[in-house]
């Protein structure tokens, strides 16, 4: 019991790193994903091919490899670019590289979700908007977007939880600087110390579980607001129906 409380205290600062990685990458990834989804639906062949290729590549390869690839790419550009510009300490820092790769990764997954929702936006509503003489920008802002975000929200919630879980491998690919260790590294170090795998990994799992439930709760509140005008309210299901 004493060990359990000790672990809770030790890992409380560690979970902040996981939360930081997720919080830093979710908003930017969200915005990027909207543009990617629109690009995938775009009739322009160049934009269409590029965004399709990007989404396919980042959804089809492991995040672990993406971390290694971008980090080693940044390392090899160090002498040519970052050093002369005097920003090598910033660019090569895991607190910058981690969110960067997570943004690239989550943007691809989120874009696929948004693209699916974009195709599910009711045709009639868009036609009605055009009949009212709305400009394409107005159509998107007032008709397509509200539908899209409501349709995509349950799957997007799932993606955010997956992204939070993906922050567990950031420090397996990037160097740990000083005491800046996330949950997994802290748990692993503790296990290497006293071989009590059951205790330390359970506490780490408890932290992941708690934050995941908080994410589900907060996103559920937003979802309730998004669907408040619907006559029959679909509920946000916590069953793992959606895969990443």
């Amino acid at each position: 019991m004493q060990g359990f409380l000790n672990d809770l205290a030790i890992m409380a600062p560690a979970v902040m790193f996981n939360i930081y990685f997720a919080a830093a990458s979710i908003p930017i990834g969200f915005v990027l994903a909207i543009f990617l989804a629109l690009g995938k639906a775009s009739p322009n062949p160049v934009i269409n091919r590029l965004t399709r290729g990007y989404i396919y590549a980042f959804r089809g390869s492991p995040l672990f490899i993406q971390f290694f690839m971008f980090y080693s790419l940044a390392l090899s550009l160090n002498i040519a670019l970052w050093k002369p510009w005097g920003i090598s300490g910033f660019v090569l820092h895991p607190l910058f590289m981690g969110p960067l790769v997570l943004i690239l990764n989550t943007a691809a997954y989120t874009a696929e979700i948004f693209y699916g929702a974009l195709r599910a936006v009711p045709r009639g509503e868009v036609e009605a908007a055009r009949a009212f003489g709305m400009s394409p920008r107005q159509q998107f802002r007032h008709v397509v977007w509200p539908n899209l975000i409501r349709l995509a929200w349950p799957a997007y919630t799932n993606e955010v939880v997956f992204l939070f879980h993906a922050t567990a491998i950031v420090y397996f690919a990037l160097p740990v600087i000083g005491a800046q260790a996330d949950l997994m590294i802290t748990a692993k170090t503790l296990v290497e110390g006293d071989y009590n795998a059951f205790l330390h990994f359970s506490v780490a799992a408890l932290y992941f579980l708690t934050v995941s439930l908080v994410i589900f709760f907060l996103f559920g509140l937003v979802y309730r607001r998004l669907i408040r005008h619907l006559p029959t309210q679909p509920r946000l299901r916590f069953a793992p129906r959606w895969l990443r």
């Binding site: 397996f172 990994f201 799992a205 992941f208 579980l209 995941s212 916590f238 793992p240």
Partner: peptide, 11 residues
């Protein structure tokens, strides 16, 4: 849903 796969993978 609540625990990342890496954790199981190591544990």
């Amino acid at each position: 849903r609540g625990v990342p796969d890496v954790l199981f993978f190591l544990f």
